[in-house]
Design a protein around this nucleic acid. Structure first.
Lengths: 354, 354
DNA sequence: ATAGGCAGTTTAAACGATTAAATTATTTAT
DNA sequence: ATAAATAATTTAATCGTTTAAACTGCCTAT
């Protein structure tokens, strides 16, 4: 790369000190600088196409105007949509975003954070994996500003912005029950993550409140690094056998994606043979033969809010903000009450088997 | 943030100069450093959890081990998948990725590049928008290493890695014709971008070679910042009227997404009423009632190759690499030859109307 | 006349690393 | 014993900025 022009170059051309050039270009000490010199400096800066070296600036000011974003996988639509919102919000404040994918692996997340922090990011937006808690405490001790996104740890007093998972799933389950479904399967993750387990709690509580005994076989908990085939297997289990369900709730877009694919392959009619609700939206749902009822996460709000909180915290480490946002239940055809037909008599077996 | 330990801190504790600490921790002058001192330095560094300040290092070495990625929109699955591959490849070489979305707007792309370059990224991976050429030439003059991804300008001698668009579309069209479809619609973008126009050329040439006269109404060219409704309208036009097509080729995943949504809404049977081919793959296609034939871009290769070329160029500005990679045609049910049935006699009207 | 004030500008240190060159200490050869 | 060679370490400049403090004229008030 050819050398870029520095303050020194401008100073030399104009015949002043670099300090003065710096003052002028940063509009400091405005009233104490000669008008003509200021103008000349600005003119020369423009002519030489001066671009400040942020690295040098950062070294001195201890600020990089850069934030780090750590998600599980940037190629996941949830993550990339969020990334885009965060990028836009950061840009509004002249911040730039460094990113990395943790693959849900704590040690990879840790390595990422170190890399980002060594590059002196001013703060972090983190979608934490299971087992991240200890390291987050470490971050707090170091005084690194950060905001958790989508997930948080109830025992950790930190900023976070997340969906009210319990409430969202509770709402979805209630809707299914109100629509006449009673044998409700759920495909979710098996993990120690509080927010994910809140989804299970929402499901179980709503069933209980409606006097439905949850069957063990209805709840499919899969590892967080699940493969598509496992999800398909879970769906197979749910829709066959004497204890088969009449509705399935997918706890994430990845689960729904593979689940719907399987339902598609099995040529199951939705909602006649099985109703479906998903958490997260996905453009993909539009391609399914039936509109999919889903819980719409307030992504824009999550992204903007978390970014703003982070930038606030960077400015002055004040209070802790914790936000549990409401999800909106978007009702589509996949949970329409089933109308009885001769070939498909509506018989809800929930209370009568065994 | 609490102050991190610096070379100076270590030097003070051990009672040596910072230079020596630097030499030890970077394994320089290995044979000329006392064994015990070296060990002690390493020990103290570990104890104080020393993390080098990359900013300071960068200022001195003029290297940040950071590359910038500029795509049209990081939330687009094509971009985010690529981003993930690039991230992984960069990580292998201890590079970190800064990203930004240009929204296909040249001035936004320019602003982004300036921001990234001021942060002294070592090089750029760019998916350029229309009108970016002048600015890329500027980059070359500045000696900024960069590699274009997915798109390039034939008049610009620069590194690039892209799909062989002409060949890919040609292959897809030939496949449609071989499968018995003759009235082939195409939904693509209207733009000055060479690579996009290569898609149109592939389509028109393949038609011509097979003795099919392309009809103007078969080719739908939409603005690059197209809205979903426009795409749906284009599909409506293609599948209705006396000149209606029997197959549609979508020139990108965004186009296919909305197009298939519309086909879904219209309850058109694929491929009986209209065959479909798409460029780019998408998980979403799995949710469609029929498997979608598509051109699979060698994403992994594109991402890895472009990153490697960039890192090579950063190391020593040598030659120019230009790669046009082959797309693979993945044939699914959406282009199965239509079998005649009483209710759906196979009559291809291509040559007989008007 | 002369101290004080003000406008305009420069000096110089600092941020945290790297690294060529200089320095000091030790060993070896004569 | 002494010069030369080698080993181990330090000095000091540098990267491109920022910014407190010092400086230089000039003007004004006493």
């Amino acid at each position: 790369m050819t050398k870029k022009t520095s303050l020194k170059d401008i100073a030399q051309v104009v015949g002043v000190s670099t300090a003065l050039v710096s003052y002028v270009l940063n509009n400091k000490k405005e009233n104490r600088i000669g008008k003509e010199v200021a103008q000349k400096i600005r003119k020369v800066a423009r002519e030489l196409n001066y671009q400040p070296n942020q690295i040098a600036k950062s070294l001195k000011t201890n600020k990089t105007d850069t934030i780090g974003l750590i998600v599980a996988d940037i190629s996941n639509p949830f993550s990339s949509s969020l990334a885009r919102i965060i990028e836009d919000e950061a840009d509004k404040h002249n911040y730039t975003v460094l990113f990395g994918s943790s693959d849900e692996k704590p040690q990879k997340a840790q390595k990422l954070m170190t890399a980002l922090l060594n590059r002196q990011v001013d703060g972090l937006l983190i979608c934490p994996s299971e087992g991240a808690e200890a390291h987050l405490i470490e971050l707090q001790h170091q005084g690194v500003p950060f905001v958790l996104i989508d997930r948080y740890f109830p025992g950790l007093k930190s900023n976070y912005v997340a969906l009210d998972n319990y409430g969202a799933i509770h709402k979805a389950v209630q809707h299914l029950i109100d629509s006449g479904f009673r044998r409700l399967g759920m495909v979710t993750f098996r993990t120690g993550l509080f927010t994910i387990n809140e989804r299970r709690r929402g499901y179980l509580t709503a069933l209980k409140e409606n006097g439905i005994t949850a069957r063990k076989s209805w709840l499919k908990e899969l590892p967080i690094d699940v493969q598509g085939a496992d999800i398909e297997k879970a769906v197979d289990d749910l829709v066959t056998g004497p204890q088969r369900v009449d509705a399935i709730l997918f706890a994430s877009n990845v689960l729904a994606m593979h689940g719907l694919k399987r339902i598609n392959t099995l040529r199951l009619n939705v909602p006649d043979e099985v109703a479906v609700v998903s958490i997260d939206e996905a453009e993909a749902y539009n391609l399914f033969h039936t509109g999919i009822t889903y819980i719409k996460q307030p992504l824009l709000e999550i992204g903007q809010m978390s970014t703003r909180i982070l930038l606030e915290t960077i400015k002055k480490n004040n209070s802790t903000t914790q936000a549990n946002l409401d999800g909106e239940l978007i009702i589509q055809a996949s949970t329409q009450p089933v109308v009885a037909t001769p070939s498909n008599p509506v018989v809800h077996l929930a209370e009568q088997d065994e």
